[in-house]
């Protein structure tokens, strides 16, 4: 009885999507919906099977993932470094923070024309845009994470003989970590959005290129497959970030009931 209700409760959120999918398949099968507007779900599955069998799909996914991750490492690493610097050193804050806050207000995508002029349509352009996009969420959250650390803990650490390095390792970094991880989750979402736009505008490979290419040949099933892949990769990144939070914030009361 309880097993049955818990199973029902787990399945309940999926009932609406499944119903919609069934309706959509029926609409395409009975010809109510033109495949030029929307292919049937089964056609998307078939496109997935065909493209992954030829290896083409995996090559595009690999290229896009590599672009996303290298942009994330460069932009996120710089954001973390500068956030740690401005958060901990007053002089660094005075020198850097207002400049960075000004640049933050420029949407990275507004720079696309300039970026194309600078880098052409090569890898550097996409790397630059993604790095810029992930930089700010991580920078700002690192900065605020350090600022929000209980001053009493830092005073305690100093009076208990911790060196500057020890203070960073024992108090400042772990204290700022919850905030830094919020920044990581934000920037992971942003990372895919920027990559999608960058790849759609100009690319010779990657998921964005695959969908734009398919559009030229009216292969709506491949276009839809590309969109679904982006959604899936975005979700995957979020799940990974959540896992990271769960592992590194085990001490936090809000994570303690879920171990």
């Amino acid at each position: 009885m309880t097993l049955k209700t818990s199973l029902l409760r787990q399945l309940a959120p999926w009932s609406l999507p499944i119903l919609l999918l069934a309706f959509w398949q029926a609409a395409s099968s009975f010809g109510w919906l033109s495949t030029r507007i929307l292919p049937s779900p089964w056609a998307v599955v078939a496109a997935f099977i065909a493209l992954s069998a030829s290896g083409e799909l995996w090559q595009h996914v690999q290229v896009s993932t590599l672009r996303a991750l290298s942009g994330f490492v460069i932009g996120g690493g710089l954001g973390l470094l500068l956030g740690l610097l401005t958060g901990a050193l007053k002089t660094a804050e005075t020198l850097l923070d207002s400049t960075l806050q000004m640049i933050r207000n420029i949407p990275p995508l507004a720079l696309i024309p300039l970026v194309i002029l600078w880098f052409g349509i090569d890898e550097e352009a996409k790397l630059f845009l993604v790095s810029l996009g992930v930089f700010f969420p991580i920078y700002i959250n690192t900065f605020h994470g350090i600022r929000a650390i209980d001053k009493g803990l830092i005073e305690m650490g100093k009076s208990y003989g911790l060196s500057a390095g020890g203070l960073y390792r024992e108090i400042i970094l772990p204290g700022a970590l919850p905030s830094i991880l919020v920044g990581v989750r934000f920037s992971l979402g942003f990372m895919w959005v920027i990559l999608i736009v960058a790849e759609t505008i100009s690319a010779q490979s990657g998921i964005g290129y695959m969908t734009m290419n398919a559009r030229e040949f009216l292969q709506t099933d491949v276009v839809l497959l590309g969109i679904l892949l982006y959604a899936l990769l975005g979700k995957l990144a979020d799940v990974l970030a959540k896992g990271l939070e769960r592992v590194s914030l085990r001490w936090h009361p809000s994570y303690q009931n879920s171990h």
Partner: peptide, 16 residues
């Protein structure tokens, strides 16, 4: 108490 919430009890005592 000013304990570090991200360190276990023993590590808090061993601080420094």
């Amino acid at each position: 108490p000013r304990l570090l919430p991200w360190r276990r009890v023993l590590a808090n005592v061993a601080l420094g």
